[in-house]
């Protein structure tokens, strides 16, 4: 069964059409990459999947694990395993990473009818994952994203993914602003979570992360539609030639 099935998705922002009949099928355990020029609608798609307001869905359906996703609230989607690593994560002064994650983790547990994890056990759970990404214990006590560098914010998003273990992770430019070592850490993080049930959408501009993750498919999103789907070779061609040669297809 497909974990995610999007049919004829049309979305506008303030009456301006952004997505124009987007189709996408993502199987369980698959990783798909989405590439495309600036402003083509990649983040819009990501935001729609997690139920962000300010967008109007004018047509189409989104099914997650076979069920309508659009009717669910953002937090229900999150607890049902849909995770977004934001392109621009927001700062929340006064709230530590550990605090948010503990609340979030236990919200997920309650949703799955599991007992909440006590503070001590959770701490260990969190520290193990932070170590994976080379993040110190001090890091966990810092307020969310406050004063983080671009790369640090991305690592932090990934840490949240490792802790919450989603079924469907959408990573919106998780690789931008990362130095070479950080990129490898992030790729390792993604690969560590990979299994035959968990699916991911990687939104990116560069093939470098994809080379370390080996996605099952690469889609090109232009003008609000998937205009071409291929494999790693497609990512390589885009790196060399840009999007110009695709504009005919898009038109």
């Amino acid at each position: 069964m497909n974990i995610l099935e999007i049919q004829n998705l049309q979305v506008s922002v303030m009456n301006k059409p952004i997505l124009r009949g987007l189709e996408l099928r993502l199987g369980a355990g698959e990783i798909h990459a989405i590439m495309g020029p600036n402003g083509s609608g990649k983040s819009t798609l990501a935001n729609i999947l997690v139920g962000r307001g300010d967008y109007q869905i004018t047509a189409g359906t989104i099914r997650y694990q076979g069920e309508d996703l659009i009717v669910r609230s953002p937090e229900e989607r999150a607890m049902a395993g849909v995770f977004l690593a934001f392109q621009n994560p927001v700062e929340i002064p006064g709230v530590s990473n550990a605090r948010l994650l503990k609340e979030a983790f236990n919200a997920h547990r309650r949703y799955g009818h599991l007992p909440e994890m006590d503070a001590m056990t959770f701490r260990t759970h969190l520290q193990e994952r932070a170590k994976h990404l080379g993040l110190s214990d001090d890091w966990l006590l810092r307020p969310i994203n406050v004063g983080f560098s671009g790369g640090e914010k991305k690592r932090n998003e990934l840490l949240q993914m490792l802790v919450l273990e989603p079924n469907l992770a959408i990573l919106d430019e998780i690789d931008s602003g990362l130095d070479i070592d950080a990129l490898t850490d992030v790729a390792n993080g993604i690969n560590a979570l990979r299994n035959n049930l968990r699916s991911m959408l990687l939104i990116t501009h560069y093939p470098r992360l994809l080379e370390q993750v080996h996605p099952d498919k690469v889609h090109v999103l232009i003008g609000g539609k998937i205009v071409m789907t291929g494999g790693m070779d497609l990512a390589g061609r885009l790196e060399e030639q840009g999007y110009g040669w695709l504009s005919e297809v898009a038109a």
Partner: peptide
């Protein structure tokens, strides 16, 4: 709204998000 949505995306209700942020404050 961005802060509340960020927390919602991690599984918190809006009320839980407000209370988390207020407590932090």
């Amino acid at each position: 709204e961005e802060q509340l949505f960020y927390c919602q995306q991690r599984g918190l209700s809006r009320e839980q998000a407000v209370s988390l942020i207020v407590n932090g404050f």
